[in-house]
Nucleic acid binder design. Sequence first.
DNA 1: CAGATGACGCCTG
DNA 2: ACAGGCGCCATCT
Length: 92
Amino acid sequence: MDEETLERVREVVRAIPPGTTSSYGEVAARAGLPGRARLVGRILAEDGHDLPWHRVLRADGTCAPQIAREQAARLRVEGVLLVDGRLPRRKG
DNA sequence: CAGATGACGCCTG
DNA sequence: ACAGGCGCCATCT
């Protein structure tokens, strides 16, 4: 991992405002790494402990099973309610 | 080098 | 809503 890429992703995640959410793909794109959603997940798993990683969800608004509980719990504190384990997406 | 895995995402049937 | 396949990158075995 290049430290630059690492920092870039970390910064993007840090820039996610409280009470809002983003997706791995979104973060990757914002970090200048379009299509590298996988990488974002890895980075958060390794060096995202001190980041608002709970504001990052999957592209469909769901969270990863292993962190789903933490995700939901942390988001809840910020006022984000998860319905059935996912963001209240409308058919829009 | 080859095979398998993972906090992912998009497409097709 | 569910299942299968492909692309993506880094890491471990």
